[in-house]
Design a binder for these strands. Structure first.
Lengths: 173, 173
DNA sequence: TATTGTTATACTCTATAACTATA
DNA sequence: TATAGTTATAGAGTATAACAATA
């Protein structure tokens, strides 16, 4: 309630109306519909969470849940991880991640082992079945969104690719 | 499992490597790190859900949850809505939305009334307190992301604005 | 009969607090 | 004492199935 809205003090802050300040480098894109960074941020945030819900709707009954699959992908592609490392990467608390890991270990998709050098740590690794599941399921899970991304223009696809980088960056800080 | 990965048959489908096919309209943006639409879709999906979790982490204890605030914003800015309309907009089932609405009604932020023309329907409207809460809380809730968006380059801000439109479109279909 | 909303129930996701084991 | 992980507990979010009221 008492937090002020940060009147543009940043070097790259824009003066309320964005388009005029742009160096005309993006002619193919339509004008921004947002009057301010606050409005853009608000819109983006709501769009993000609604899209997450939309994607959740799409999941088939026999598939891992979104959280489980995301955690499995991280373990599989980012190598062996401790619980803390995984929970930080997934942006949840260790107890939350532990519950997800329990489900994955019970399904024999992830192996949980004690670290050799530090008895407090556990090392999480994707099992052979876990790695196979990622590879097999990935295309099917992504089919819904991939079909739609495929129908976008090359420019829009470029926008999504760029946005993905920005979103990763935002999620990490 | 049996769903095939759709070998680029779409008119706008790109031939596995994106950059070469682009009409050189976006010189300021770096080359795409994705080899295929499947990979972009996968990355984008995971980034989206991780960012949602990151944003959830940011919520203060005395604020509405993400789902409650999103629903309140929809009722407030998209006028009176029936339960079905709201649940479709928020991309959850009517029973799920009903639970959220119950919380908002209990907090006297939303009014639930019977529709005059159709006794089966309910009309949801933001109360005066609900509208005031949206306006008061919005800046504070968005402060975290707005601060970060403010530090992005104008080009990156443009990307986010464009991506927001695409994400809204994706969530609606 | 079909539609709209609600209740009942269950499972996942998430968090905080408190505990154990190790460093 | 500090750190890594786990267990206990609780609340929010979500869904399906079943039900009630209305059209």
């Amino acid at each position: 309630m008492s937090t002020s809205p940060q009147p543009n003090e940043q070097p790259t802050g824009l003066p309320a109306a964005l388009p005029a300040a742009l160096p005309a480098a993006l002619p193919a894109l339509p004008a921004l519909p947002h009057d301010s960074i606050a409005e853009l941020s608000h819109d983006f945030r709501l769009a993000n969470s609604r899209l997450t819900r939309r994607l959740r709707q799409q999941r088939a009954d026999d598939e891992l849940t979104a959280g489980q699959f995301s955690a499995l992908c991280s373990v599989y592609s980012s190598g062996p991880l401790t619980l803390s490392e995984l929970s930080e990467h997934e942006r949840v608390t260790p107890p939350s991640m532990n519950r997800t890991v329990n489900a994955l270990v019970a399904a024999q998709l992830v192996k949980r082992e004690n670290a050799a050098d530090d008895g407090r740590k556990v090392i999480l690794t994707a099992s052979e079945a876990g790695g196979a599941l990622v590879q097999e399921t990935r295309e099917r899970r992504d089919a819904w969104i991939a079909q739609r991304v495929m129908k976008l223009s090359p420019e829009q696809q470029q926008v999504l690719a760029e946005a993905t980088l920005i979103m990763k960056e935002l999620a990490e800080n």
